[in-house]
């Protein structure tokens, strides 16, 4: 496990495998679920069935699954524009999410949010965010609310290498560190912020190196290794839960698809993407599980089939659901509605 003290991110490997078999299989199942959802969404988008635009997390499933499965249901997460995986990993039902992508009245946000504002508050998923870096302060606030209520909930903030450069992330990191809030800043460094290579926007190599400047531990983990991500988040969530304060975890991963579906990707070579296939997080965990005798081909196929059936059912549900009525556009703005709405 890659762990550092305040003062810089250094990697320290730990070899023992302390994650129980059920959890390991769960990680695989959740990753398959995300992959299947994303591939289905991609196809549906290309077929013209989904309005708007969508950002996929294919290749980054180990981050969402590894992190969220290390949290409790009542813990909070804040997400990004690339939030489908986070939402699924926090155990949101796929049906309502898919219906939201279809802009249907039965969607998680009743068709008012779409892909970029996917959210499920019932599982502590406080929303994808169309504002890059917008979730960091929300996570700080969630942690404040937990402290005020004297619960031991933690808040995990997913953000990207691009978001790492926003002032909101700096302010939130400093504040969380000053107040020792139970926040896990989880940076998915997928090597690009839209068309910009991470290195072109960072004056240092690792986002996690910035932790020293905030006075919190910085940790680097292989973001395509679900078990490693899971271990790191589990350990630091426990640390935060027991009053140890925030942490900055940087997961080194890779965005396998374009920034959005339809991105011509002129900023990177196809070879680079192809080379990353060897790091596929799902293949990797499957191989590890097979090596440990926890998985055989039949079981893997069964898992894939179960997940595919769930996502197909979600697509059916979404297709059959009604569109919102036009006048629903005026609902859900205020809890206490304002009678006269000009």
């Amino acid at each position: 496990m890659a762990v550092t003290d305040v003062g810089g991110a250094r990697a320290v490997q730990r070899v023992d495998n302390d994650i129980d078999a059920d959890t390991q299989l769960d990680l695989l199942r959740v990753m398959l679920r995300i992959r299947c959802f994303e591939e289905r969404a991609e196809a549906l988008f290309l077929a013209g069935e989904l309005p708007g635009f969508i950002h996929l997390s294919i290749g980054q499933e180990a981050c969402a699954a590894g992190a969220c499965l290390a949290l409790r249901r009542d813990d909070y997460i804040t997400s990004t524009h690339r939030g489908h995986g986070h939402c699924l990993a926090k155990c949101a039902p796929a049906e309502r999410m898919m219906a939201e992508l279809f802009a249907k009245a039965t969607g998680s946000c009743k068709g008012k949010g779409g892909s970029m504002h996917i959210a499920d508050f019932s599982v502590g998923m406080l929303g994808a965010n169309g504002i890059v870096g917008g979730g960091a302060n929300l996570a700080v606030g969630a942690a404040i609310a937990a402290r005020l209520r004297q619960t031991d909930q933690v808040a995990l903030c997913f953000f990207g290498d691009g978001a790492a450069n926003r002032g909101t992330v700096h302010e939130a990191s400093n504040l969380a560190a000053v107040w020792k809030l139970p926040v896990i800043f989880f940076c998915e460094n997928n090597r690009y912020a839209s068309t910009t290579a991470a290195g072109a926007a960072l004056s240092i190599e690792n986002v996690a190196d910035r932790a020293a400047g905030y006075g919190m531990p910085g940790v680097i983990v292989d973001g395509n290794d679900a078990l490693a991500v899971h271990r790191v988040v589990r350990e630091w969530a426990a640390h935060a839960r027991s009053g140890g304060g925030p942490v900055l975890i940087e997961a080194k991963t890779y965005r396998m698809r374009g920034h959005y579906v339809g991105d011509p990707q002129l900023y990177r070579a196809t070879d680079e993407v192809e080379a990353q296939r060897a790091r596929d997080p799902i293949d990797r965990l499957a191989a590890t599980l097979a090596g440990a005798g926890l998985l055989d081909l039949a079981r893997l196929e069964r898992l894939r089939a179960e997940v595919a059936e769930e996502i197909e059912a979600a697509v059916r549900f979404a297709r059959e659901s009604p569109l919102p009525s036009p006048e629903d556009a005026l609902a859900d703005l205020y809890v206490n509605p304002i009678e006269r709405m000009p």
């Binding site: 960091a136 606030g141 005020l148 808040a155 302010e171 400093n174």
Partner: peptide
């Protein structure tokens, strides 16, 4: 707070979303 206006308001929003 520190002089962090985005955090003052952003954290207030986050806390409010979580029932405070």
């Amino acid at each position: 707070t520190p002089i962090s206006e985005t955090s003052i308001v952003g954290a207030a929003v986050g806390a409010a979303l979580c029932g405070a």
